[in-house]
């Protein structure tokens, strides 16, 4: 494969994904654009069902087809459109170039194989290493993700590890073949808070060591603020705002982002009511006319109910948002 080392690490252009089910077509992703540089952490933020996990799985090419179909767009890795690659070459990209870790490590690991086997499997199938050599590498990796006593734990099964340790195993597995993109789909959601911090710290560390691009999918604004460089806020299958983390926290440009930030409990607002976003995100089979966010939006006017949101507007370099009333939201 002719990867161009000078091309952007990972770029998603106008990707559309739909699920064709008996009950109708659900447009889960409707025109997502993302770009990721080496060493950068891109957080994809949004509520459940906004299409963030589908985006990640479409990049990996592990969506169940049917019912899911990528109907439009490009996923460029070092300039090569992965969507156009034959399955066999696409398969080689997985784990070798782009690896992924999942939310619930207990169900994401195979219960009947030891963790050493599951990590070693990568070396055996992709690198043709022997069982013994693969196991030795697995021990090294478990060591790297700081699993104590790795040598003796390599033959243990997933259920014998704690939640945090299991997620470390997942990370070890993802790092095995030295990918330069890591997609983490809500890696800490299933963990308690102290363990969350440890796992995020570990991810940040391995990312720095390897200069990997990290796509962090999450709905946790707190996690994002600590580690992300750039944030893509998704709503109903679209990126509504895309900006460096500092800008978004200081001056959100989209009403949804602003509402999300206002719904975070803050110590200095103690005693005051919390500004939650009312209502639920729309069902993807039944997205409202106009801007999908308008029923929940504080800025909504007639134009929002009738016309689709305007094309992404470049507010500043590397900063875009898609709303009729950006100026108003920014307060300029």
């Amino acid at each position: 494969m002719n990867f161009d080392p000078n091309a952007p690490l990972l770029q998603v252009n106008d990707m559309h994904v739909e699920f064709r089910t008996r009950d109708g077509v659900a447009r889960a992703v409707t025109g997502v654009n993302l770009i990721l540089r080496p060493g950068e952490t891109l957080a994809v933020l949004g509520e459940s069902g906004c299409g963030k996990s589908v985006t990640a799985q479409a990049i990996m090419g592990i969506l169940d087809t049917p019912p899911a179909h990528v109907t439009k767009g490009e996923v460029l890795y070092r300039g090569v459109d992965l969507l156009k690659l034959p399955e066999d070459e696409r398969r080689q990209v997985r784990a070798n170039r782009i690896a992924m870790i999942f939310q619930d490590a207990l169900s994401a690991l195979n219960p009947v194989y030891s963790v050493g086997y599951q990590i070693g499997e990568l070396f055996r199938t992709h690198r043709g290493l022997s069982r013994q050599e693969a196991k030795r590498r697995a021990v090294d990796l478990l060591d790297q993700v700081r699993i104590p006593d790795a040598k003796n734990r390599v033959d243990d099964y997933p259920h014998q590890f704690s939640g945090g340790m299991r997620q470390r195993v997942m990370i070890a597995m993802a790092l095995a073949l030295d990918p330069d993109v890591l997609i983490a789909d809500e890696p800490t959601t299933a963990l308690d808070v102290t363990v969350q911090a440890q796992i995020m710290g570990l991810l940040a560390e391995v990312q720095r060591e390897r200069n990997m691009g990290l796509v962090l999918i999450t709905h946790d604004m707190g996690v994002v603020a600590d580690v992300a460089d750039t944030i893509a806020v998704m709503y109903a299958g679209k990126v509504v705002e895309y900006a460096p983390v500092y800008d978004i926290y200081a001056h959100p440009a989209h009403p949804y982002t602003k509402a999300l930030l206002e719904s975070i409990p803050r110590l200095d607002f103690k005693g005051r009511g919390l500004n939650v976003i009312r209502g639920l995100p729309p069902a993807l089979t039944d997205v409202p006319r106009g801007c999908p966010f308008h029923p929940r939006c504080a800025y909504a006017r007639d134009v929002c109910r009738q016309d689709p949101p305007p094309p992404a507007y470049q507010i500043a370099p590397r900063r875009i948002a898609s709303c009729h009333f950006i100026r108003e939201v920014l307060g300029v």
Binding site: Q57, R94, A95, A108, L109, N110, P111, L122, T125
Partner: peptide
């Protein structure tokens, strides 16, 4: 449909 099958696919296995 299990999650670990998705993981196995993400590992680039045939």
């Amino acid at each position: 449909r299990a999650d670990y099958v998705r993981t196995a696919r993400a590992k680039g296995l045939t």
